[in-house]
């Protein structure tokens, strides 16, 4: 570790705001300016930031639908197999394929599969759990879960240029509280 001490890894440049609307406006300006590899950080979901940052629509609903259908089919097939094939039980000549009685379990498995796919799918698509992320080195970032709003333009952005990007962030309409570099130790 000691040999790259003098040259710490730069992650990006971050602007700090105390107002969610300022973050949305800053994101929009950065997007209009042509920045793409950037991310907003906020203590609660902000209306309109998805469009400002150009975040594409998530595919989570399709996953949920697929899992729900899988769950329903699994539940129905399980009951049909058990009650018709593997352990048919004649109760006064009633039909083995008594599908109305199979609906509750089918429905519950539909919900079970869909809900867990939604929850776990959301976490995995977000790349969580992830105990460490470079942005956590940003100044004041422990307030990103409480009352501060951050916009980080990352070094990997094609338009990223140390001087210009800093100048752009410092001269936004909503003045940020602070503009700092995020450096990985």
């Amino acid at each position: 570790m000691h040999e790259d001490n003098q040259e710490d890894k730069l992650y990006g440049i971050v602007a700090e705001f105390d107002d969610p609307d300022a973050l949305v406006a800053a994101s929009q300006s950065a997007y209009d300016k042509g920045y793409r590899v950037m991310e907003g950080y906020s203590p609660f979901p902000i209306h309109g930031i998805d469009d400002a940052l150009g975040i594409p629509e998530t595919k989570l609903p399709r996953l949920t639908l697929a899992a729900g259908l899988t769950g329903a089919c699994t539940g129905f097939a399980l009951q049909c197999f058990a009650s018709m094939q593997h352990y048919p039980y004649d109760i006064g000549g009633r039909p083995y394929f008594s599908w109305p009685a199979f609906i509750p379990v089918t429905f519950e498995l539909n919900i079970l599969f869909a809900a867990f796919t939604t929850g776990i799918g959301m976490l995995l698509l977000n790349g969580l759990p992830l105990p460490y992320h470079p942005i956590m080195n940003a100044k004041n970032f422990d307030r990103a879960t409480s009352d501060r709003f951050f916009l980080c333009i990352e070094k990997t952005d094609p338009l990223y240029d140390e001087g210009n990007t800093r100048e752009f962030l410092e001269n936004l309409d909503h003045k940020p509280l602070d503009v700092t570099e995020v450096v990985e130790p």
């Binding site: 906020s42 979901p45 902000i46 992320h133």
Partner: peptide, 16 residues
């Protein structure tokens, strides 16, 4: 789980 309040995360979180 390393939650950092990222806008992309909130987007999926709200959908979930």
């Amino acid at each position: 789980l390393g939650w950092r309040g990222s806008a992309r995360h909130w987007h999926r979180y709200e959908m979930a």
